Amino acid sequence: MNPKISDFGLARTFGGNQIESNTNRVVGTYGYMAPEYAGNGIFSIKSDVYSFGVLVLEIVSGEKNRGFVHEEHSNNLIGHAWELQNEGRSMELVAKCLGESINVSQVLRSIHVGLLCVQRHPEDRPTMPSVIMMLGGEGPLPSPKEPGFYVGNSTQGFYDGSYGISSNSEPSITKLNGT
């Protein structure tokens, strides 16, 4: 599969046959970068899947991942969605402005797929063609594993509460702002 066909982000900058790359300079916007990329500069088409998952959760909730603050915990939007999913309360994530006009089963499916996309380990994340099929389908979905940048019971240490990066390789971070 050509990574340029399914992915919308940084995967386009790599050669068509490249599955993974390691960069010396990490470029992107905090809150959307996959943990393996933000922490170690390792980028793959699964990094774009992570970013897509963040966008799905943002659309459903009407909140931005970056700067998300919840009064009861220190998790970001991803961690908040993960905890609600585990407690069977995913509908609490849905933006109030959507009101009664939503298709509940489709919204719950979108949250579930979003959480599959933001799983901590790239190999656990689906491919973009799979994501499209899952969003449009009605079949059962696999259970998502713990997401990246989750504060709760995380033992990986990627997230320090402010999207600071802990890494031995000390990559530089450049924030890109859209116009």
Rank of each mutant, 00 (worst) to 15 (best):
T13R: 14
A81T: 08
V69K: 15
I59H: 02
G41T: 09
A11K: 02
F149E: 05
L10I: 15
P3K: 06
S47W: 04
R89G: 03
S21I: 07
S61D: 01
E20W: 05
V26K: 05
L84P: 07
N24C: 10
E72C: 01
G16S: 14
V56Q: 08
L108K: 15
S90P: 10
P122S: 06
N22H: 13
G39V: 01
G139W: 06
S74T: 12
M33E: 03
D160Y: 00
G88D: 03
G15S: 14
L84C: 06
P129S: 02
Y30I: 14
N40D: 15
L77K: 12
E170K: 14
R120N: 11
T155C: 05
E100W: 01
L176H: 10
A34Q: 04
E58F: 02
Q85I: 00
D7E: 12
M91D: 12
G164R: 10
V118N: 01
N65K: 07
V27M: 13
S47G: 01
Y30E: 05
Y32P: 04
Y37I: 05
R12N: 10
V94H: 07
K46R: 14
M128R: 01
P144Q: 09
L55H: 04
K96I: 13
L98K: 09
S61C: 05
G41K: 05
G28Q: 07
P126N: 03
G9T: 08
R120W: 11
P126W: 05
G136F: 03
R12A: 07
C97V: 15
A38G: 11
H70W: 09
N65V: 07
S101W: 02
S169I: 13
G99D: 06
E83S: 12
F149L: 11
S90M: 09
E20I: 13
V69L: 13
N75C: 11
L57I: 09
L55M: 15
D124W: 08
Y30V: 11
S143K: 14
I5Q: 13
V104T: 15
C117I: 01
I102G: 03
R66Q: 11
R109H: 04
N75F: 03
I45P: 00
Q156K: 13
E170M: 13
R66C: 07
V27K: 11
E100K: 14
P142A: 02
P35I: 06
S101A: 14
G67K: 10
A34E: 05
L57F: 08
T127P: 03
M128C: 03
T13D: 11
S172R: 10
S172G: 10
E63L: 09
N65G: 04
T29G: 00
N2S: 12
H70F: 11
L135I: 03
